[in-house]
Simulated assay, not measured.
Amino acid sequence: MRIRRYVAIGDSCAEGIDDPYPDGRGYRGWTDLAAGELARVSPSLEYANLAVRGRRLDQILTEQVPLAVAHRPDLVTLFGGGNDVLQGRWQTMARSLDEIVATMAEVADTMVLLTLPDIARLPGLGRLRPRVTRLNDLITETAAKYGTLLVDVRDDEYCHDERLYSADRLHLGPLGHHRVAAHVLTALDQEPDPAWLAPLPPAAREPVWRTAVGHWTWVRQHVYPAVHDTIRNKLSGRQPGDGFVAKRPEPGPFTPAP
């Protein structure tokens, strides 16, 4: 498959949060990794990334989709819905997802949708499992309805392995971004770097006290600040991601990382 123009839309995972470039020039993520491999096959590839952290599906629809349509891409990837789950925005979620996919499927030859991992694996978030399941069912049904490609991250045997995630245990870390990029490339009939899907060594077993300390550190450094920010945003009328912009708003040549 030769792709001339690739546009990524979505939220923080599509933006590449918590997978920084080694030289500190921003976040990389699975979209940059996939674009780099596609550019090796198609050196004239142009790539844009319109994803912005914190964005819900209704915001992706109104803010990113019109720009994506104007770019006339051959390939579109969408990773989104996690913020809808966290905010319980069921009223608009299904309608927004359907409109996003219907609109982009009319423009792009190929579109890839991705499911979400089960965030109920995190302590205290078990109540969110039905929401995540509902979202993933919706994504799967929408992909079938419009004939898009689907990457179901739950098919990866390491999907819930903590080593794939960053310190906040919610966003992917570098290892997770590489694995998602490999799954996307495979869906596009491209051969990913085998190292990106290499089996992980057995996880080291930690004593109970160390696990407990790890949970407390996670709550103190990530959960409490996130709850505080959520309350502050509600009181001020702000939304997560306000003030941030897309990292690659215009399609342009993309040089694969060495």
Rank of each mutant, 00 (worst) to 15 (best):
P22G: 12
W216A: 15
D18V: 04
T115E: 01
W196L: 05
I60K: 03
T115L: 05
L57G: 03
G16N: 11
R134Y: 06
K145A: 14
D229I: 00
R72E: 11
W216Y: 04
E141C: 02
R53G: 10
V223S: 08
P43H: 10
E141P: 02
L97R: 09
P199F: 04
E15L: 15
V69H: 00
H178S: 08
P192L: 01
E15Y: 15
L200M: 15
I119T: 01
H178A: 14
D11A: 15
W90D: 14
A143P: 07
A120Y: 00
L172W: 12
F254M: 06
L97A: 07
F244H: 13
G241C: 07
E191T: 15
G176K: 08
V245M: 09
A108P: 04
A226F: 09
D137K: 07
L128W: 02
A14P: 10
I60S: 01
I17P: 00
R28F: 10
A102P: 04
R210H: 08
L50N: 12
A102H: 13
Q91S: 14
T211L: 15
V85A: 12
P117D: 00
L175Y: 06
L78A: 04
K247G: 06
Q221C: 08
L57C: 06
R238L: 08
A94C: 02
R40T: 09
T148A: 14
L78M: 04
L45Y: 11
A70S: 12
Q87P: 02
L113D: 07
A204D: 11
T142L: 10
V69F: 01
A257H: 12
Q87C: 00
R169E: 02
N49K: 08
D18H: 14
D23V: 10
T115G: 06
L86P: 00
Y47H: 13
G88S: 05
Y21Q: 11
D23R: 06
V52H: 11
G80S: 07
G243V: 06
G173Y: 09
Y158M: 01
F244Y: 14
R127L: 01
T230R: 15
Y158V: 04
Q91E: 14
D98H: 14
T77H: 03
Q64K: 07
A187I: 04
